[in-house]
Amino acid sequence: MKQAFLSILLVAPLVAEEPPVAEVFKLNCSACHAVDQMVVGPSLVEIAGIYRKDADKFVKWCIEPQPKRPGAIEMPSMAHLGEPTLRKLYDYIMKAAEGKTELKKTKGDPYSLPQELVRRPQVQRMFLPDASPAAIAVALPGELSYCFDAGDCRLRYVWKGGFIDGWPYWRANGSSQASIAGDVIYTEASFPFSTNASKDIPGSDFLGYAIGKDGLPTFRYRRLGIEWTEKVNPLSDGTGIERSFTTSGSAALNVAPQDGVEITSSTGSLKITAEQAKSFTLTFRWK
């Protein structure tokens, strides 16, 4: 009898004891969710306000979260916890948020992320200062961002620090400009190229952009009667940008000096032949 009982013990599967729900929250949720303020994700107070009396909707969101806030880091699925544990988490969050209020920011976007948590790279179509309504904001890896003006088909400026504060734009339902969350360190007064033609062809035509595997955009446009592509990368030390161009190669180009930067060309000269103009890079380093 004892031998049979021992055999049962040896072959019976070991069942791990489920950790308390507070530990589950700490291990899986606390890095992104605080009680009364947004960290990476919304606060427990905000979550309770959204899902109060709707545990089913909360569980569904945790299992299949969807993109919600532009530029924010997306929540991973919590399906591995299982529905019973997620329902315990729901009760835990509702109780933790009870009687608490959200800490409000004094200004700016109440849903903005700390600078170090902004997703980089990223591209956002947004009304920005000192640009046409067709401005595009690009967050580069590191601390640099830039504004590309699709209306005028050229880079407008580069800033360092955070990305953008979209609250003025969202609050006004798109009728106001976002603000720059950083300091502008380079402003480009005009398109930096001219040709040797007696009179350059005026006007511009934006042809769109494509996002590469690295998450950075390559813009296509037509200026000076030439079709261009342009891609901007940050220098590894953060002291400037590298701009990669291709053109239809139909004309020699002259690169105009710009205030506040040192410009060097992969061709070795700021006078670029038509053949060289088919593919070249310019490095802009802050002085």
Rank of each mutant, 00 (worst) to 15 (best):
I63M: 13
M94Q: 15
K95D: 15
T85H: 06
E83H: 07
R69M: 13
K95I: 13
I73Q: 10
P67G: 11
Q66E: 14
A72P: 00
R87C: 06
P70L: 08
D91Y: 07
K68V: 15
E83V: 03
H80N: 11
A97D: 05
P65I: 14
I63R: 07
Y92P: 08
R87A: 08
G71S: 10
E64M: 13
P70H: 05
P70S: 08
T85F: 00
Y92F: 15
P70F: 00
Y92G: 06
E64V: 13
R69T: 13
K88A: 02
I93T: 02
R69N: 08
L89V: 15
A72N: 07
K95V: 12
P84G: 07
I73A: 12
G82N: 09
P84D: 05
P70W: 00
E83F: 01
E83R: 04
H80Q: 14
E83M: 04
E74D: 14
T85D: 01
G82M: 08
Q66F: 03
R69G: 00
Y92R: 14
T85V: 13
P67F: 12
R87I: 12
A96M: 15
S77Q: 03
Y92M: 12
G71E: 01
K95C: 12
Q66A: 08
E74K: 11
M94H: 09
Y90F: 15
I63P: 01
L81K: 07
L81P: 03
I63H: 09
K88W: 02
K95A: 15
L86K: 08
A72M: 12
Y90A: 05
T85A: 04
Q66D: 03
A79Q: 13
I93A: 05
P65V: 13
Y90C: 05
P70V: 01
Q66R: 10
K88Q: 11
K88P: 00
G71H: 00
D91I: 03
M75P: 05
Y92I: 08
S77K: 03
K88L: 02
A72F: 01
I73V: 14
P76F: 13
R87D: 12
M75Q: 11
D91W: 05
E83Q: 09
L81H: 08
K68S: 14
A72D: 12
I73D: 02
P76D: 06
I73N: 06
P84R: 08
R69A: 07
G82K: 04
M75Y: 02
M75I: 11
K95P: 08
